[in-house]
Design a protein around this nucleic acid. Structure first.
Lengths: 200, 200
DNA sequence: GTCTATAATGGGATAGAC
DNA sequence: GTCTATCCCATTATAGAC
């Protein structure tokens, strides 16, 4: 029996849509392509989703959450600041390197969402969320290394998000591993330069 | 006489297409919308351009070149490093703030170009060009301030492009001027920290 | 060269049999 | 609930009158 519940079908269609988007781009992700990828008849689409837009909303929510996940690496408390910073940055970068197409899709979906009045707010909230993750990631680093940042956290968090986002975008275009590593290393040096011993 | 040459019509259609893309997004920029914006009949399109794709190529080339322009501000040679750095960064940032929608379109078009096999290479070359501009901008700053950078220029250039690109993208989403300025200011501090007196 | 009318395609959505 | 067949629309592109 290959009978699936409506919820399972929704799930299948969301994942199929993501695969098609990664492979062919958002513009070419038609309802026909999605159901084809999922091995379902075209009619199945519209008793799982009211419209294509409703599916896209689900896709955007899922892919944007997935783009972050556990961003902080496991480092022992009390480790040297240098190790904490480098390990955290490399953990982020490994995720990018392992799923480049998925991250490219993240940018594409952000652009797409901004153009849909009903989805624009979702895109903005997502970047707000990214800022919060950046913020808490820096806090975790400070705690693990037993330091504090000499730059206000909101400013440092925004700069961090910008650096990582920008380096990611450039790397997605030229895939220059050596240069990306070198730039990330230099950013690590900067972070170390604004780490100060904690005040008691 | 409102007679125009074919070249002038091409020009009008390119500019009309850019206006529509800024207003409605790339996906909604149909040939009908473009000729409508230009005040031309639909038929005019296809004796100015072989296809929609050909127009898009022209649009991408133009908008990407326009996104840069004179990136370096006019600063007197021998000015203090701090002034050179801050003036240059503010010149860049003013451009963003004055034409936010155009810059958002730049990101959208980069994504679009990457999905078109014939345009993907154009997108990559453009980021290569951005890296070169970043490189030469840093060189100009060093010369004006009479310093040299203690970080290898290719690394510094990639980091600079990343920072500016990333901060731009975040600001385009949340339009938080104060936070963007603060982050840019902190990046200026970083640049000053890697500026060293020139060796003779 | 210029424009109108129309072709040809592919899309989202739905009707209705099972 | 499930799927087939179909509708209806918007799109790019072209044919052909002027």
């Amino acid at each position: 029996m290959t009978r699936r519940s409506a919820d399972e079908r929704r799930e299948e269609l969301i994942e199929a849509a993501i695969r098609v988007m990664i492979r062919d781009g958002v513009a070419r992700t038609t309802t026909r392509a999605i159901v084809g990828e999922a091995g379902l008849p075209l009619g199945a689409f519209h008793y799982c989703f009211r419209s294509k837009e409703e599916l896209l909303q689900s896709v955007i929510e899922r892919i944007m959450v997935r783009a972050l996940g556990p961003a902080v690496a496991s480092v022992a408390e009390g480790a040297p600041t240098e190790e904490v910073v480098r390990t955290t940055l490399h953990a982020y970068w490994d995720r990018i390197r392992q799923h480049p197409d998925e991250h490219l899709l993240t940018y594409e979906l952000t652009q797409y969402a901004l153009r849909q009045p009903e989805l624009a707010e979702l895109a903005r909230r997502q970047y707000q969320h990214y800022l919060e993750v950046s913020h808490s990631s820096l806090e975790t680093m400070a705690q693990l290394a037993g330091i504090e940042w000499s730059v206000p956290l909101p400013v440092l968090a925004r700069l961090a998000l910008g650096v990582l986002d920008g380096l990611t975008l450039t790397w997605l275009l030229d895939r220059d591993d050596a240069q990306a590593d070198a730039a990330l290393e230099e950013y690590a040096n900067y972070l170390l330069s604004v780490a100060k011993p904690r005040q008691h």
